[in-house]
């Protein structure tokens, strides 16, 4: 379905500062990142490193202060509409309508993608089935568990068959079974040619899912590579060790061990 000739995501020199009356807080400080089409890249980093801000810029919710950001070949600043047509976003806050049922939420997305009635119904049924939500589909989402809402959130993201998908901590708070179901879905999407950028706190998730890992620290990418490469380069047994070594706060770095 996708015919990618360039990278799906290209970020060069991205800077972003949150400005407020209580002072400016720089979050991204010259971030560079390229994600080839059809791959899964995991963005790792400690809390506050700028992962969510990066996803915010990529998904056109935040305007970059400096640098160029292209998604699916389109510039997020000058061609936001084309970027939006190509992407699907599952943010950190679950973005579902709690008063509606699962089916109604998915049909709402189908209508907004102008899929047409029959195709909308087909796509809704398919996604409900794929994410194992069919049983609860016609009950209001307010009565669902957090894990089910999360899966519906992902299903809503996929209704429009996006070529680039951003998942911001998609499995936070999910039980192991739901997490596996979500991983399976990610693998299926990549097999279909979708590009995925996911942020996560779970390094096991990055290790299992990602072709590539990018470690974000203090607003820049400090390491990049396949999980095994990173482990080898940093002479570490697990991604946890790599992560801790790369993202140590300054005080720890001065502390001789």
């Amino acid at each position: 379905m996708t015919a990618a000739t360039g990278p799906a995501i290209e970020i060069a020199g991205l800077c972003k500062t949150y400005r407020s009356r209580s002072g400016d807080r720089p979050v991204l400080d010259g971030l560079d990142l390229t994600v080839p089409a059809g791959t899964v890249t995991a963005l790792l980093g400690p809390n506050g490193a700028g992962k969510t801000t990066t996803v915010g810029v990529l998904s056109t919710l935040l305007a970059p202060d400096a640098g160029t950001v292209r998604v699916a070949g389109h510039d997020v600043t000058t061609d936001a509409g084309a970027v939006r047509a190509a992407i699907g976003v599952t943010g950190q806050i679950t973005a579902v309508d709690e008063l509606l049922t699962g089916t109604e939420n998915l049909r709402l997305m189908a209508a907004l993608h102008h899929l047409g009635r029959a195709e909308g119904r087909r796509r809704t049924a398919e996604l409900l089935d794929r994410l194992a939500l069919a049983e609860a589909a016609d009950t209001p989402v307010a009565t669902w568990s957090g894990g089910m809402k999360r899966k519906l959130d992902l299903a809503m993201t996929l209704v429009g068959t996006p070529s680039v998908v951003f998942l911001d901590e998609p499995t936070t708070g999910l039980d192991p079974r739901s997490r596996r179901a979500l991983w399976d879905e990610v693998r299926r999407l990549v097999a279909d040619g979708t590009t995925i950028l996911l942020t996560t706190q779970y390094l096991e998730e990055a290790d299992r899912l990602a072709d590539d890992v990018a470690v974000l620290h203090e607003g820049r990418i400090v390491a990049r590579g396949a999980p095994d490469e990173l482990k080898a380069v940093h002479d570490a047994g697990t991604l946890d060790d790599v992560f801790l070594a790369l993202t140590a706060p300054p005080a720890d770095q001065e502390d001789p061990r």
Binding site: A3, A37, G73, T161, S163
Partner: peptide, 20 residues
Amino acid sequence: MSAVTAPATASAGPRPLADV
């Protein structure tokens, strides 16, 4: 640097009245 093409299922162009 050409784009990843939009999915064929979604119709092209904005449709404000349909969205409202």
